[in-house]
Design a protein around this nucleic acid. Structure first.
Lengths: 227, 227
DNA sequence: GGATAAAACATATCGCTGTTATGTAATACT
DNA sequence: AGTATTACATAACAGCGATATGTTTTATCC
């Protein structure tokens, strides 16, 4: 009856090992036996601590969303909200490219041992939209975006950027229409479709590029050690 | 040495059964033993005819691309090329929703028994862009789209619609920002970002909706029996 | 501190998977 | 007809997730 907390020694170790295996060797490297070997433990550890592979994958997905949210939160609010919005898109793509396999599990629905997302997981996914919603509101206030539904604008940004990243990870975007070129064009296009002028959008998108190094790439890779 | 053609009796049968299993029960139902049972054969049939599960999945992917291409080709060229473009987007989404698991394998990179796409497969994927490229060219000629790169425009349309469909299949788009609403808004936005006016885009997107029944939904589900 | 209950772990096992090896029957070409 | 090649069936192997069972460690209570 007493809800004694599980020994927290090996839990994060297993998650870290699983994340490393997924990142370095792909989904097929994720197995209870491989995890047991790497952690100097037995296959049972996965079941006592996570109830099975699905639970461990779910934990990784939760951390993936936390990492994504952390990346997006690092984008500053400046006097050019359209540039902020573009930088949010860049941060989103940056995070996805840094963890491609994990991103595939989070959004591609990559089964990964019969794992399927919970409604709660999807809520986490939409929660990260908050940054874009707030940013869209500021774009309205600045007169850059045509007055409208901030949440809808955020959804359109999200789906468009997600599609580009997904095709990029799938290897579908090659020269001369490579991912970089399509991404820049799509960013500008999204701003224009939201109401911005061609020139202003191009300027803000270009300006956001220079902010990548300080506000996105400087983010630590491992955000929440959940201490 | 003599390249004697394999007995073509059971090959398409296996592909059909695999497609049905994938569509009705999902990826985990695809197993050599299950296929052997359904086809009243043995597990070896998969290896003699396809070299393993990967080969069979590849065959399904090829048929999936053919089906998608068939859907897109059914869209007519009318005097309103922007409406034609919007209908291409609708046909793309319609095809994906009709074969969600197969679509996930084709674009989501769903591993599915260690299967991975060949560069040739991806070429097939980009090949289907031809319809959109031609349509974009007509949008230029009609003065609806700002003169530019038709292939680039097609890529932007593709990635944006793909992202929306992927999020829809992942269950990320729920009311009040459900997939239908986001899709309609995204279609209009894409036309605007390509140079069309708000009013003209809204009109063409709305007009394309009425053409769905005749030009998209009427398409036979099984296109190329590869005779 | 000793008793006790619960959690963590190790081992062995089950049913399943893709794949391969081997033997046999059918088929096509010379 | 004779022969080579393919197709198929059976059995087996290595690996997987998952479970059952016994053992060790850990934490709580008297």
């Amino acid at each position: 009856m007493s809800p004694r907390r599980a020994d927290p020694t090996i839990r994060p170790v297993l998650v870290d090992i699983a994340a490393r295996l997924l990142a370095e060797e792909g989904p097929q490297a994720l197995s209870t036996r491989r995890l047991a070997t790497e952690a100097d433990s037995s296959t049972m550890a996965v079941y006592t601590h996570f109830g099975g592979m699905s639970g461990l994958v779910r934990e990784m997905v939760r951390e993936g969303f936390a990492r994504l949210h952390h990346h997006l939160t690092r984008v500053r609010r400046t006097g050019d909200p359209v540039a902020d919005m573009a930088l949010l898109g860049r941060a989103y793509r940056y995070n996805a490219l840094a963890n491609p396999h994990l991103y595939a599990v989070m959004f591609g629905g990559s089964s990964l041992a019969g794992f399927s997302l919970t409604e709660e997981d999807r809520q986490h996914g939409r929660y990260t939209l908050g940054n874009a919603v707030e940013c869209a509101t500021r774009c309205f206030a600045a007169g850059r975006f045509r007055a409208g539904d901030a949440e809808l604008v955020a959804h359109l940004m999200w789906s468009a950027i997600h599609g580009l990243v997904a095709l990029e990870l799938g290897g579908y975007l090659i020269a001369p229409y490579d991912a970089d070129r399509c991404f820049e064009a799509q960013l500008a296009g999204l701003m224009v479709s939201s109401g911005d002028t061609l020139e202003a959008a191009a300027g803000s998108v270009a300006a956001s590029r220079g902010r990548m190094r300080d506000e996105v790439e400087a983010v630590r890779t491992e955000p929440a050690a959940d201490g």
